[in-house]
Amino acid sequence: MLLKNVISGLVCLVLGALLWWIAGDVPSFTATDELGGRFFPRLIAAMIMLASAGLIITGALGIEIAGGQVGGKKGQAQAPQVSKEDEEPVETAHVLGVPVGTARLISFVLVMLVYTLILDVIGYIPASLVTFAVMIWIAGEHRPVRVILGSVVITALLYTLFAIVFGMNVPEASLF
């Protein structure tokens, strides 16, 4: 059984059903056309549920149906051979019981989320300076001077290029 396929199929099935249900609020037909705005979303929802059922069934049977390839076997992507010295090192460390790679990922998402929330509160430059420094640190650069310099350089480059050269409006602080 391909558990990943079965679980993702079930999630998609639920999402398809949810789309079908929400589409019930859209008028079924209007004066301009018979199908109305509800038909297309409901058609998609039904097809999502159908494809999800296919994914669940094939996943439960342990079958993975790969797509067709242009050029048949000649066109099948082959994994490049990687020599031992080029292989990525495996990280075994954990942070609070979570693998270190996953911890970096979660922290990055959270930092980016905070960034999108503080942009219009403290303004583009302060928000970017702080966020980029934290991101650089999370991504693996732990020397303080380089973290600060990196953050300043990236923020300055982006601001100069886009806000000054291209004249783009960037969020301004509402707090001050």
Partner: peptide, 28 residues
């Protein structure tokens, strides 16, 4: 084509179509 699993390719496509339906109905 070139997808590891044809159902996943189909589902990704359909979710793309579902996102398009968000907004103002082009006819009404």
């Amino acid at each position: 084509m070139a997808t590891k699993n044809i159902f996943k390719g189909a589902i990704a496509t359909l979710f793309g179509l579902a996102i398009v339906t968000i907004g103002t109905d082009p006819f009404s």
